[in-house]
Nucleic acid binder design. Structure first.
Lengths: 333, 333
DNA sequence: TTGTAAGCGTTATCAA
DNA sequence: TTGATAACGCTTACAA
């Protein structure tokens, strides 16, 4: 059923039907009622595709996440979908699985589908593709990870501070052999965390040793592998800072396999307070970030842009250290 | 940039451009190359909205989940997105948050956006809206929860068996005071689990007592409340079967607050093996379900339908009991 | 206040 | 093999 069917039935023009539905105040009360009544009775459903083509607006926001199974990103998606839906927008979701090629495909797709805006929280995207967005003046917000584009709204955590909080805590407990399982070098958030870690050690006059610096890819398996290597060292670290929750899950696996007691033999600080961190054995000390708030903010910035806001904003959220029971002073030798 | 711009530049008609891109074999090799070359150089991006309007096909699949933060659903979404993307489909995601009204809004939205098909894993939807889908012959697959519609593809777990496995395990350990924290009565999966629980108790000649049957809404808070009530009983249960992972998280919270020792004072079996279940203290005994496989299957059934498959399939997956350390024989009095 | 008609960017039919 | 043109279902000048 289309407007023209309805129009025939009502003996009015399609324009009137359209107006009655989209801008009711521009239609005489009597006709308006007549139209709306028939629309209700017939169960007519607007064709949003046709409308989008005509208005050049899909009211759809795209989101690319790097790993939808990571609770950090589910929380983001939830928040984004929430503000989208309540503002009459829909969400096209793409999962890059921490893989740059998937991300390119996704980006391509979203551009073709004419999304009104994009929330981007994924890997080292193809900058050229992202620039296409800008050329088409499709607003973009970088979330959690910075693409490096100019004049882009950005929502991030103060990762440097987060890492510093974690490291400081370890240092204050008396740890000297402090290791890090960092994220991949091409991601801004990983780099900043590593940076905060190093600076804090330096300011405590501890030399951050190369053998205590491992790199993963933010996924579980890599955390496990990195932990294995660390634990196999002749003098293994007495504390590890793991730079995201997925790698922490992997690290825990390795640690349990070796029957290492946390925190007696090894202190552990994680990044991002996934729910399981508090249920874990022992409950994990972590740097927590306000995930839902970040997602919400990102969506709001995007909507703001779509409503004409000119300037790009950068919002920095504050991490918090949540001390639980995976950290303790090091064993004396 | 549009076909007509390209056409002008190339001195061909828009029809030729369209053909060169969509059905290259229908165009003379020479012109084809010429067209493709210009398309590449100009960085032209197809407008999928216009195409959708003309072809009456959006190649978009909608998914309504009841709680995206629940790892069960993130796994589903991941799997669905995966097979969608590799088949040239996009995914419009809606999060109902276990709320029927949100679900209606979402459904409305997805219909207007002309999704090619819908994967439905949410609450007791409005059957009338779902019927609209059928009238428009938009294929629908029920995942995890059955809507009650006829001739609909369905992917479910054998919930009855799952609950039986869990209950049997408890009974075999010698528990007589076995409680359940069930999901809401209006959800098919909740009902079936409760059913399996009751039948198993009966077959073990244990009367399932009303005071040991609590209902939640599959969300964390309700699990916590239900556990509180159970634990406040004059003779509390010696074992609880919690019918989903979110409510388990809540229950755990209540249990820890009361400093009840699991499994010494209380045995616990959960439903769905979220990752945290194995990291929990103690690691949780759970009924596990092959979540990703279920999501994948659902997407495949949907694509099958879109490719012309006539008959509705029902696929039933098998749960497995994973025994960890939250269950033990009851304390002797 | 309403109607007419053009137009959004594709695809598909038909003719050349 | 290619081109002219209608059509998909809406919105919006502009005219009546």
């Amino acid at each position: 059923m289309t407007f023209s069917d309805l129009a025939k039935q009502l003996n009015v023009s399609t324009a009137t039907v359209s107006r009655a539905l989209s801008r009711p105040e521009t239609v005489a009360p009597a006709t308006r009622e007549r139209v709306l009544e028939v629309v209700r009775r017939s169960g007519y459903q607007m064709n949003a595709i046709a409308r989008s083509l005509r208005t050049q607006s899909t009211r759809t926001i795209g989101i690319i996440v790097s790993d939808i199974r990571n609770p950090f990103f589910s929380a983001i998606v939830k928040a984004v979908e929430d503000v989208a839906r309540t503002n009459g927008y829909s969400v096209l979701i793409c999962n890059a699985d921490e893989d740059g090629r998937n991300e390119e495909v996704a980006l391509q797709l979203l551009i073709e589908r004419q999304v009104s805006g994009l929330i981007h929280c994924s890997a080292g995207a193809n900058l050229n593709l992202l620039r296409i967005l800008q050329k088409k003046s499709i607003p973009l917000v970088d979330l959690d990870r910075q693409s490096g584009l100019e004049n882009v709204d950005t929502v991030v955590l103060d990762n440097q501070l987060g890492a510093a909080l974690a490291t400081r805590h370890l240092v204050d407990l008396g740890h000297k052999r402090v290791a890090i399982i960092s994220g991949p070098k091409h991601l801004s958030n990983a780099r900043t965390r590593l940076d905060g870690f190093r600076k804090t050690l330096r300011s405590a006059h501890i030399i951050s040793q190369k053998k205590y610096t491992e790199f993963g890819d933010f996924r579980e398996q890599s955390g496990r592998d990195a932990a294995e290597r660390l634990l196999a060292l002749p003098t293994p670290p007495s504390a590890i800072f793991v730079a995201n929750n997925e790698m922490m899950a992997g690290a825990l696996f390795a640690i349990r396999q070796r029957r290492i007691k946390v925190p007696r033999d090894l202190s552990l600080v994680g990044f991002d307070d996934a729910r399981w961190a508090q249920y874990s054995d022992p409950p994990l000390t972590v740097v927590s970030q306000p995930t839902e708030a970040m997602g919400k903010k990102a969506a709001e910035l995007l909507l703001g842009r779509l409503q004409g806001e000119k300037l790009a904003n950068t919002i920095v959220f504050e991490p918090q250290l949540v001390v639980r029971r995976s950290t303790a002073p090091p064993k004396r030798k």
